[in-house]
């Protein structure tokens, strides 16, 4: 038995640079911490973050890239984690809402949402804040229109967006 296994292992090592599998071994950096996991190929990135890493701040809304609740930063750009497989993120650098807080202190965008009543039920908020984070990184001084355009991929069914826009403007002032 041991002999046969080692032969097979040797063959595998030679022929397959991209190993096919329903299971993948991935390494990702999330909020500055390195993780290694075995995941099913079909596992969505949002499920990996929530269920494997326990980072439940990233919400799963629609699964079809409509609502934006699952927005995270992947290699520095905002993406929707429900339309990526965890396996695809191998080698990637991810920031989630949990990564914005430093030493128990809310990030200025988080505080601005609090101060300006930028949320009601809070379901869309993590995605909204991650998208705002990216938006303000790209454009530190956005106009109202640029803010609305920038968050058009994030749905909020409570606020009517007025206070969200107000929060992002306040955060932009704070961050400048």
């Amino acid at each position: 038995m041991p002999k046969r296994r080692s032969k097979r292992a040797a063959r595998r090592a030679v022929v397959t640079p991209a190993k096919p599998s329903r299971e993948q071994h991935i390494r990702v950096r999330v909020n500055g911490v390195d993780h290694e996991s075995d995941v099913e190929s079909r596992m969505l990135l949002v499920h990996y973050l929530r269920e494997v890493l326990g980072l439940t701040g990233t919400h799963e809304g629609c699964d079809t890239s409509n609502c934006g609740a699952c927005t995270i930063l992947y290699n520095g750009r905002s993406v929707k984690s429900c339309t990526m497989f965890a396996a695809q993120a191998n080698g990637g650098d991810i920031v989630t809402i949990e990564g914005l807080t430093k030493d128990g202190q809310l990030h200025p965008i988080q505080r601005a949402f609090w101060d300006n009543h930028g949320l009601q039920c809070g379901f869309c908020t993590p995605g909204m804040i991650m998208q705002s984070y990216w938006l303000l990184k790209e454009n530190p001084k956005p106009t109202d229109e640029q803010i609305r355009w920038g968050i058009s991929g994030n749905l909020c069914r409570c606020t009517g967006y007025q206070n969200i826009v107000k929060s992002i403007k306040a955060a932009a002032r704070e961050l400048r």
Binding site: S65, S78, G150
Partner: peptide, 9 residues
């Protein structure tokens, strides 16, 4: 096309 996040990917 769609929104910023979708266009980023």
């Amino acid at each position: 096309i769609a929104d910023v996040q979708v266009r980023n990917r």
